[in-house]
């Protein structure tokens, strides 16, 4: 994401080398520079980590020497050593934990990705229609969003998965349904605040159809707000998906998943405590990174709004 949208410096010549005192004096305008891609070093590291995770998940099959996640490769319950497959140890039946964490990343990321696609798609559709036309559509969307928000997410998912049987597909759909309300609410609020702006009125005065107003005028202006919440909601999905696996309703067994790995290693926690680290770290770091990147986008959004 870094550098993807670097802004031209508006024709001004780049600053000549400045003295330290001037650099200190320039503290205030420096804040505005944070809006540019880059942010703080921590945010950059988090973004790089997520990028790496996605790449690993995509190309995990091509990592040379990585053992299969489903077959034992060595002795069971080995503590971490300095080989590739053994770096996080082996599990109760001798499978490489690293391999299972990486393949688990593929499962988790694809589930989270497609679930977000579902919730974002339907959420935007419902939210934008509700915000644009108001009235009964708005009330229906509000009712749905409020109901979903008032139920514990894990219960909803459990009910959905228990009634349909757990497969990658049903879990993805169930997780997708979970966040539709939240996205709808954000989209609705965005549409309402944008609809009152003069540029929408100007487009209407030019004869723009409702579809054009929604898709070409309003939607691009919702993107900043959405980029700020998508990573945070994705982080929530990772945790929910992990809890689901932990409770035994997740990805059906031998397929690797982070929650499932934590669940199986808790049995042996007292004897082999080190073996839980791999999956736990994977979840913690990923969720942390997603939230940090979400904060970065949120801050960019608010500084943009302050600018008007």
């Amino acid at each position: 994401m870094t550098g993807a949208r670097s802004r031209k410096p508006a024709g001004k010549p780049v600053a000549d080398p400045q003295s330290l005192s001037e650099a200190v004096a320039a503290a205030r305008p420096r804040l505005s520079r944070l809006r540019l891609p880059g942010g703080t070093p921590v945010e950059a590291v988090c973004a790089a980590f997520l990028l790496l995770l996605v790449l690993l998940a995509l190309f995990v099959d091509f990592i040379p020497g990585l053992a299969s996640p489903n077959f034992p490769y060595g002795d069971f319950s080995q503590p971490p050593d300095l080989t590739l497959n053994g770096i996080l140890g082996t599990d109760a039946i001798g499978r490489s934990i690293l391999s299972r964490v990486l393949y688990g990343a593929r499962t988790s990321i694809s589930i989270v990705f497609f679930a977000t696609l579902i919730s974002l798609g339907f959420g935007l559709l419902f939210g934008m229609v509700a915000g644009f036309y108001r009235g009964s559509v708005e009330r229906a969307v509000d009712l749905y969003a409020n109901t979903m928000a008032s139920l514990p997410p894990i219960l909803v998912i459990l009910a959905l998965v228990a009634s349909t049987g757990s497969s990658v597909f049903t879990i993805t759909v169930a997780l997708g349904i979970l966040d539709i309300g939240t996205y709808a609410r954000v989209a609705k609020g965005g549409v309402i605040s944008q609809s009152n702006r003069d540029y929408i009125l100007a487009a209407r005065a030019m004869g723009a159809s409702d579809a054009r107003l929604l898709l070409k005028e309003i939607l691009p202006n919702l993107v900043p707000a959405l980029t700020a919440i998508v990573p945070t909601l994705m982080a929530g999905l990772i945790i929910t998906e992990g809890s689901l696996s932990f409770l035994g309703y997740g990805i059906p067994a031998p397929a690797p998943s982070w929650g499932g790995m934590i669940a199986s290693s808790t049995d042996l926690l007292s004897r082999y405590p080190l073996l839980i680290f791999g999956p736990v770290l994977a979840i913690v770091i990923t969720v942390y990174a997603l939230n940090t990147v979400g904060d970065y986008f949120a801050r960019r959004l608010s500084s943009r709004e302050r600018q008007g």
Binding site: A15, Q18, E22, A25, A26, R28, P29, R30
Partner: peptide, 13 residues
């Protein structure tokens, strides 16, 4: 009397 005011900015105040 002779008020001058410099605001901090880049590249110079």
């Amino acid at each position: 009397e002779g008020i001058c005011c410099h605001l901090p900015a880049e590249p110079r105040p």
